[in-house]
Write a protein that binds this DNA or RNA. Structure first.
Lengths: 264, 264
DNA sequence: CTCGACCCTA
DNA sequence: TAGGGTCGAG
């Protein structure tokens, strides 16, 4: 038996909006430490890791660890029926093949319960090692989203290059090419508007814009995004979820095709 | 000769937005008591009844009773050309096959007149008997609209059950099921936010959500909606039109298919 | 946060 | 053409 009560229900709505286009079906894992999910996207290229810590819930009861396979589109459909300031409770029983989402309006005048069928999903749960990154960029999530959207109208891939001075996003396509440079800038009014670069080594990596654009669907969850880069490692695009945890997207860099052109 | 002058022209615009998707062609009936319409929807399942009392018009002249057959989509098209605070005058002559809509801007700087061809429509005017209902629910129209929309993403039909405590909307579909309970609540700041239940007998009836969702197009006309239910009678979904009358939608309940499962 | 207007897609 | 989403304003 488990019961998780989340006062800020809109968070869960945003989480599902953020991942439902990337992942069709996934197991949610429930343990005493929190509610989490790890899944590959449907083309098996990107990985999503979500964590909502138990401390972030108003009430968190989980008698034993278990997984629930959900169709994320159906789950998102049900969560759309919750008001933005509704309190959402997720509950279920051991061995049941359904999960219940309960929505309480702030005034308690309207109480809805939605029961969703669970599904069997076999998933390999990969351990993701904590790594040292050559560079970590923190910037406003809306700005990152805008850049990825803009560049994808020119090219399919982006080269992200980090130096001490700033981060450069470059693309190239049939109609031309583009470079967008964001300088490190910590002297802004609000800290969430800052662009901060922590760099051990300069790094320059290429990624498919298609996936980055999917990741930016998580922008409503956080004003800032953190992009962690190392050669030979998947980039991590992280959106913190206030008081609760994070949603992280992993994407392997492309091997630069430019080298083809360098060959004899 | 008739001439109806309506100061709050936006009312008429909203009325047409509310019914034009449900009914294609209909006869408007003009008499000394008011301007009214009664029509079946195009699939002959639901019925719309509109009344705009003569007292609600600034000027109302109707020499003798008559009907005008109008294509509601064309009428809506013309009314879209009126500003939201225009004064609308509807006028015509006996035996003419056209009707004229005149729009005056509040400042009188712009005066438009639109002439529309009438059409011959044979309609049986059903007398709708006033009935006693087992239960009458009054609730905010926006809330009713939201519930019907939300539930239609899960199932096709809704069971509306009324008890003294509240009204429950339930549905069931492939991906799961849902129940939304609205408690009776009269202790709100504004009377139009109240949910009020007048119940003689508990009642539970099933309706096609598709039609209810059409009915909720009338929500802009009124902050509240009244739902009158009795076994074996069509439900009445009524939106009052301030100072003027009402728009009422009638829909027969579905015979519960669950009974099939009870049979041997 | 709710409402309305506009835009866009299905 | 209708429905959903987003954006902007109250």
């Amino acid at each position: 038996m488990f019961e998780l009560r989340l006062v800020q229900g809109s968070l869960l709505k945003k989480v599902l909006d953020a991942i439902k286009d990337l992942v069709n079906d996934a197991n949610f894992d429930c343990s005493s430490s929190g509610f989490s999910l790890q899944a590959m996207d449907s083309s098996h290229v990107a990985l999503v890791a979500l964590l909502l810590r138990s401390e972030g819930f108003e009430h968190y009861r989980c008698d034993r660890n278990f997984s629930m396979g959900m169709n994320l589109n159906n789950m998102a459909k049900m969560l759309k029926c919750a008001g933005n300031d509704d309190i959402i409770t997720i509950k279920g029983d051991d061995g049941s093949d359904t999960v219940t989402f309960m929505f309480e309006s702030p005034t308690q005048d309207k109480i809805a319960d939605f029961e969703m069928k669970l599904m069997d999903i076999d998933s390999e749960h990969l351990g993701i090692p904590e790594a040292e990154y050559q560079a970590i960029v923190r910037m406003p999530s809306a700005e990152f989203a805008r850049i990825c959207k803009d560049l994808s109208s020119i090219g399919d891939t982006v080269v992200i290059s980090v130096t001490k001075e700033g981060v450069k996003f470059s693309t190239r396509g049939d109609i031309g090419s583009a470079n967008i440079v964001c300088r490190q800038n910590t002297t802004v009014d609000k800290p969430e508007e800052a662009t901060v670069i922590e760099m051990n080594d300069p790094v320059s990596l290429t990624f498919a814009l298609r996936y980055l654009n999917s990741f930016t669907k998580a922008s409503p969850l956080s004003n800032t995004v953190t992009i962690s880069l190392s050669s030979e490692l998947p980039v991590v695009v992280e959106y913190k979820i206030a008081e609760m945890g994070y949603i992280r997207f992993y994407l392997a860099p492309k091997i630069e095709e430019d080298e083809e052109e360098t060959k004899p």
